[in-house]
Amino acid sequence: MSNIDKRNRLNEEVFTYKTTKDNKVFIYWKGKQVTVLSGKESEKFLQRILNKDHKEIQLVMAKITGNFKHGNEKDNRSD
């Protein structure tokens, strides 16, 4: 896993998720909603993160959300 996360971004909690009663999963990046999983996608996600540690769960969410692996993402800080 060290080769995947060279800058140790996954040690931070940049991704979070919330599950609703109807088994939809909302995935957030730094507090902003980036994707919604439902049906088989949400079931698959919940199975993939079962019994995983924090960093592995962050990696799963990073892969699901897509374009978060190039290293050129903006920080969204106002200077």
Rank of each mutant, 00 (worst) to 15 (best):
Q58R: 02
L50N: 13
A62W: 10
I64N: 02
D53H: 11
K63E: 05
I57G: 03
L50T: 00
K52I: 03
K69G: 15
E73R: 13
R77L: 12
E56D: 11
F68D: 02
D75W: 02
K69H: 10
K55A: 08
D53N: 15
K63Y: 00
I64L: 13
G71A: 08
R48E: 13
V60L: 01
T65K: 06
G71I: 09
Q58A: 04
T65P: 00
D53V: 11
L50V: 00
D75R: 02
K69C: 11
L50W: 10
I49S: 07
N72V: 14
K63R: 08
N67I: 08
M61D: 05
N67A: 03
L59M: 14
R48I: 06
K74A: 10
M61A: 07
D53L: 12
V60E: 11
L59G: 07
N76W: 02
N72R: 12
V60I: 10
Q58K: 03
N72I: 15
E73Y: 01
E56R: 02
H70D: 15
K69E: 12
K63C: 05
A62F: 06
K69F: 07
N76Y: 06
N51G: 05
K74H: 08
K69S: 14
R48L: 11
R48K: 14
R77N: 07
V60G: 02
K63M: 09
I49N: 03
E73G: 11
N67K: 14
K55Q: 15
L59W: 12
G71W: 04
N67R: 07
L50S: 11
M61Y: 02
T65I: 06
I57S: 06
K55C: 04
L50H: 14
L59E: 15
K69P: 00
K69R: 14
I57A: 09
N76E: 11
D75M: 04
L59C: 09
K55H: 07
G66N: 04
I49P: 10
E56N: 05
E73N: 13
N72P: 01
N76L: 09
A62S: 09
H54M: 12
K52W: 05
Q58C: 05
E73F: 03
D53Q: 13
N76A: 07
K52S: 13
R48D: 12
R77F: 11
E73Q: 15
F68E: 01
K74T: 04
N72E: 13
F68H: 09
G71M: 07
N76S: 08
R48T: 13
I49W: 08
I49D: 05
A62N: 08
K52M: 15
N76P: 00
E56I: 01
D75T: 12
A62D: 12
L59R: 08
R48Q: 14
K63A: 04
R77Q: 06
E56G: 00
D53W: 04
K52N: 08
N51P: 01
T65Q: 04
N76F: 04
N51S: 12
G66F: 01
H54D: 05
N76T: 09
Q58S: 02
L59S: 10
K74E: 10
I49E: 03
